[in-house]
């Protein structure tokens, strides 16, 4: 990487929900969202719940539509604007460039924990032996007991599922990681492990955009905090 251009550049982004089942009620969420995230930075979205932090993260990931503005992600062959990209371009970006660690694991029935964690690495073209070793290393690091690795995570506790999810989110080599409260239901020991893993990604030059309700974790990982209330469209609507 030769330039200091940001990995992620969000500009003029607006989002509202139109609730057709509520007589077409429009719920404004955010407006004029603008910020950038560069390599090796962890930018944390701040603000009270309901301010639109999660919506911003989902727009970047592409599972929320964007009403206006651009969300430019730099990948190996150029820049993709997630706001206008075709589904195939977004899927390709998710394979090569972008990772997402959500709060909740959407477990596929019957797939073992190790396979759940390995999947994104295999999708990136890593061989099975290396992917398996890397998955095992991450699961061990996150204190998921080895006897659970061959079981599907559907029956695990909330904290265990979340750690499986974190391992899955961190296994592939991506340039941009989206973190949606990755430490929400973890104990202090595992919170510290996640903080270390995030620091390691930062040192490796990964750009990160995250939401952390835990002030202690936030203060330790944040390079900068972007206050989402400044993008609020509630005042404009009132």
């Amino acid at each position: 990487m030769t330039t200091n251009e940001p990995i992620l550049a969000v500009e003029g982004v607006a989002k509202s929900f139109v609730m057709h089942l509520r007589g077409g009620l429009t719920l404004p969420v955010v407006d004029h969202v603008a910020f950038t995230v560069s390599a090796g930075e962890c930018v944390v979205l701040g603000g009270p719940s309901g301010a639109g932090k999660s919506s911003i993260l989902k727009m970047v990931w592409g599972n929320y539509g964007v009403d206006a503005g651009s969300i430019r992600v730099r990948d190996c062959d150029g820049v993709v604007d997630v706001a206008t990209a075709a589904p195939r371009e977004i899927l390709a970006l998710r394979r090569s460039t972008m990772g997402y660690v959500s709060q909740f694991l959407r477990a596929v029935p019957r797939v073992s924990t190790l396979d759940v964690v390995m999947e994104p690495a295999l999708a990136q073209g890593l061989d099975e032996t290396t992917a398996r070793a890397r998955a095992a290393e991450l699961l061990a690091r996150l204190n998921v007991p080895e006897r659970l690795w061959s079981l599907p995570p559907a029956t695990f506790s909330g904290g265990e599922q979340q750690r499986v999810n974190i391992a899955r989110g961190l296994i592939s080599r991506v340039d941009l990681l989206l973190l949606d409260e990755p430490t929400a239901s973890l104990d202090a020991v595992n919170r510290a492990v996640v903080v270390d893993l995030i620091e390691a990604k930062k040192a490796a030059g990964v750009a990160m955009l995250g939401i952390f309700h835990d002030a202690d974790v936030r203060d330790r990982v944040a390079s900068r905090i972007v206050d989402v209330t400044s993008f609020s469209s509630h005042e404009a609507a009132a």
Partner: peptide, 30 residues
């Protein structure tokens, strides 16, 4: 990977599967 939503013989909404399911736009999809 992708979804097409049909109603009365027409495609009323199409896109990335998680976009259509997490942020449905059309009244019928909602």
């Amino acid at each position: 990977h992708r979804i097409m939503v049909m109603r009365r013989g027409r495609v009323i909404e199409a896109g990335l599967t998680d976009r259509v399911l997490d942020d449905p736009r059309e009244a019928y999809t909602q």
